[in-house]
């Protein structure tokens, strides 16, 4: 497999609950891939399946070309992992933690670990149990970057961190990304704001299904908030064009989100659907706005019995 992470028809059940459903995903080499979705969408379960912490019910997954069921200590020497759920050895100081981890990694870079710790202002001699959540996460990050992993997996790394720590954490990742070694970052989050700066690929997962996956640039380019005025009371076309999301009308105004925006065709397509439409305004959307739109669309689809 060419991609650092690939899944094909991956499913994973907890009893009767299907946490991940038929997930097919490819994480391109060298990308910073953000898997986003609401809480309980299946992000953490997917990551645990990738790292052989959970066994898939069906389908398959590979990490760095290795079947996820075969992810061994040798493979883990090439993978970094930071998770909000991970139980750190809290009796240790950050210094202890690094000393504990170092012998297991042939590529452990003492100088890099030291510089990273300094950059993150990580207190080295304070027991982790006495540290804030942010400091613990920074210690875990340093312990996961110091060996220059080919793949860094971050599972909800920003949860519960204050703004300053989030910034430092992000800087820590960017520091490595700016180096000369090729690597891939796979990050799961329900908080789009934090991954927006980092990610160049986005996957959106909901109820265990991967709803979309594409480069951030492509995603941002094809989503626009459209507002148009009609001559009389606005009436939404029926059926709505498939690419229009959350369409609504109010008085003479029609608003919707275009999910297949092409600048040269936008005006004509709106006028085709709403004859006499005028004053068509097109507003670019942030990743966060797109994510919120998609989340609302998914919720509406669920309330309608799963039809999308």
């Amino acid at each position: 497999m060419a991609h650092p992470i690939e899944t094909a028809g991956l499913s994973l059940r907890y009893g009767r609950t299907e946490a991940v459903r038929d997930l097919t995903m490819e994480v391109p080499a060298g990308s910073v891939y953000a898997l986003i979705g609401p809480n309980g969408a299946g992000k953490t379960t997917t990551i645990k399946a990738l790292l052989n912490l959970l066994r898939p019910s069906s389908g398959r997954a590979s990490v760095l070309g290795i079947d996820s069921r075969q992810v061994s200590p040798a493979a883990l020497q090439r993978i970094g992992y930071v998770s909000e759920n991970q139980e750190l050895p809290l009796w240790m100081t950050a210094s202890d933690l690094l000393a504990y981890c170092a012998p297991f990694y042939p590529s452990w870079d003492l100088a890099f670990a030291a510089s990273l710790a300094k950059q993150l202002a990580l207190p080295m001699d304070k027991p982790l149990k006495a540290c804030s959540r942010g400091t613990k996460m920074k210690a875990a990050l340093v312990a996961s970057l110091a060996y220059h992993p080919e793949l860094l997996v971050l599972d909800e790394p920003f949860a519960g961190l204050d703004a300053l720590v989030r910034e430092e954490f992000t800087q820590g990742i960017l520091e490595v990304a700016g180096g000369d070694r090729p690597w891939t970052v796979f990050i799961s989050s329900h908080d789009i704001d934090e991954v927006e700066r980092l990610a160049d690929w986005i996957g959106v997962i909901n109820e265990g299904r991967l709803e979309l996956a594409e480069p951030v640039s492509s995603l941002v380019a094809r989503f626009r908030r459209i507002e148009a005025a009609s001559e009389g009371d606005a009436v939404l076309p029926s059926p709505l064009p498939a690419s229009w999301l959350l369409a609504e009308s109010s008085g003479r105004t029609v608003r919707f989100v275009e999910s297949r925006f092409v600048e040269s065709e936008c005006g004509a397509r709106v006028r085709d659907a709403i004859p006499g439409a005028r004053d068509i305004s097109v507003t670019p959307m942030s990743l966060r706005e797109i994510f919120i739109v998609l989340a609302r669309v998914f919720r509406l689809a669920e309330s309608r019995g799963g039809a999308r």
């Binding site: 645990k48 790292l51 912490l53 959970l54 200590p73 040798a74 493979a75 883990l76 020497q77 993978i79 992992y81 998770s83 759920n85 991970q86 139980e87 750190l88 050895p89 981890c101 297991f104 990694y105």
Partner: peptide, 17 residues
């Protein structure tokens, strides 16, 4: 303290045989 039960123990995601 390095439990083999569950999925959250630190050692599980480190290259420890």
């Amino acid at each position: 303290r390095d439990s083999p039960v569950g999925t959250t123990a630190f050692w599980m995601t480190r290259p420890i045989q």
